[in-house]
Amino acid sequence: MFMVRSSAQYANMVDVIHTTLSEQSSRRHTVEPIPETMRASVLLAKGHIEMQRRPVPHPGPGDVLVKVSSVGICGSDTHYLREGRIGHYVVTEPLILGHEAAGTIVATGKGVAEARIGERVSIEPQRPDPNTVETRRGDYNLCPHMRFYGTPPIDGALCEYVTIGSEFAHVVPDAMSDDAAALCEPLSVAIAAARKGGITAGSHVLVAGAGPIGIATIQVAAAFGATSLTVTDLDAGRRDLALTFGATTALDPRETSLTGLHADVFIDASGAPAAITSGIEAVRPGGTVVLVGMGAETMELPVQTIQNRELNLTGVFRYAHTWPTAIELAASGRLDLDRMVTATFPLEEAEAALNADRTPGTIKAVVRL
């Protein structure tokens, strides 16, 4: 295993969940012969997507080969398409985007039981270096040598087959759809944010932004026991949708001041400087601020408010140890990932999927293979 802090407990939890789901999952898909090449949607340069034939990858030691069934489109994917970069991650060579993925294991590498062939899995799209300090202490999401799907120069999942470390291919129950299995990825971001915020029974939570991460965060906060869930968004349609996913109040921040809200936890899923500033002002003394949304690289913050109220200010970078919880929450019916899907596309129309966020009413676009 690749972590030291609570490694035995976490490994045991993963083994138990994997065993239980494997026992529950009596259905095994017929595995077809694996071709030599596959279809792939490739970002050649900023704004330029092309369908190509690529060699099917071979699973290395400890890996599994997954035939991809569903890929969710994330805001980071659209950033790479339109801007060619996110911060210091720059697209300099052809890149396959996509990191929200699910599929079926069709082959295993050395050291992985062939019994895993046929399992339906949700992919945790990370390959941390097992020997870094961050990984060994359990914070593998902070590994400085991380190889993450769809992040230059690592190819992602907008293709027919991918490989991943076997421990990052999480078995899902038969009742879970392929789309929901793929959306365990953004759900994991929300779980990481809720954990950082310390959301618990009776928490008063403020969420800025009712996009995919905001909607997932609302659902997770409710599942964690939050009793007051206020969401802000500039779009009336998204505010109305947030109410159907568990928000107790939905506000237009241009019309309603958040001062005096006294939230226990503020989670920003917008990345907008104005939303972050007003959200911080709405947090009670000793409360917590969690920054999740991708925004400007730098911004001004109300430092005196943070100091005088002794606010806990932190960020979230991806996730660690979240998939077992994500699968359990989704499978239990405590939240609804399928209803977040508002548009679907075939692989050949991946570029349209990447631009679907420009269509009013779109929450989550999914590419189905």
Score class of each variant (00 low, 15 high):
241 L>P: 00
85 R>D: 06
316 V>T: 07
232 T>H: 09
80 Y>S: 14
76 S>T: 12
350 A>Y: 06
184 C>G: 06
240 D>G: 06
328 E>W: 09
27 R>S: 11
181 A>Y: 11
141 N>Y: 03
324 P>R: 04
73 I>V: 14
237 G>S: 01
307 Q>T: 11
141 N>Q: 09
87 G>L: 02
334 R>E: 15
230 T>N: 05
22 S>F: 07
296 A>Y: 05
291 L>Y: 05
210 A>T: 06
56 V>K: 08
134 E>I: 08
369 L>T: 04
109 G>I: 10
145 H>S: 14
198 G>C: 00
70 S>C: 13
358 R>G: 15
230 T>Q: 06
207 V>P: 03
136 R>D: 11
358 R>V: 09
81 L>Y: 13
288 T>A: 13
61 P>E: 14
9 Q>A: 12
294 M>Y: 08
49 I>E: 15
362 T>E: 07
165 G>F: 08
114 E>A: 13
14 V>M: 10
329 L>C: 02
237 G>Y: 00
38 M>I: 06
22 S>W: 08
112 V>R: 09
286 G>T: 03
42 V>M: 12
97 L>D: 05
303 V>S: 11
261 L>Y: 07
191 I>W: 03
329 L>R: 01
196 K>Q: 13
262 H>M: 13
261 L>G: 04
191 I>Y: 01
99 H>N: 02
257 S>E: 04
308 N>Y: 06
198 G>E: 00
156 G>S: 09
69 S>G: 12
216 A>C: 15
340 M>L: 15
52 Q>M: 09
119 E>N: 13
239 R>Y: 04
87 G>P: 03
240 D>R: 11
9 Q>K: 13
347 L>P: 01
272 A>R: 11
53 R>P: 08
214 G>I: 01
66 V>M: 02
360 P>E: 12
242 A>Y: 00
229 L>P: 03
352 A>C: 06
51 M>S: 04
4 V>M: 14
70 S>T: 12
111 G>Y: 04
80 Y>E: 13
355 N>V: 03
172 V>E: 00
146 M>E: 05
261 L>H: 10
103 G>Q: 12
112 V>I: 13
46 K>C: 09
302 P>V: 04
278 S>V: 09
156 G>P: 14
122 S>C: 10
190 A>W: 02
186 P>V: 06
189 V>S: 05
361 G>A: 02
336 D>P: 00
8 A>P: 12
196 K>S: 14
185 E>N: 09
56 V>Q: 09
176 M>L: 14
75 G>H: 03
281 E>N: 15
243 L>I: 01
66 V>W: 03
207 V>F: 04
190 A>P: 02
201 A>M: 13
241 L>Y: 01
233 D>A: 11
120 R>L: 07
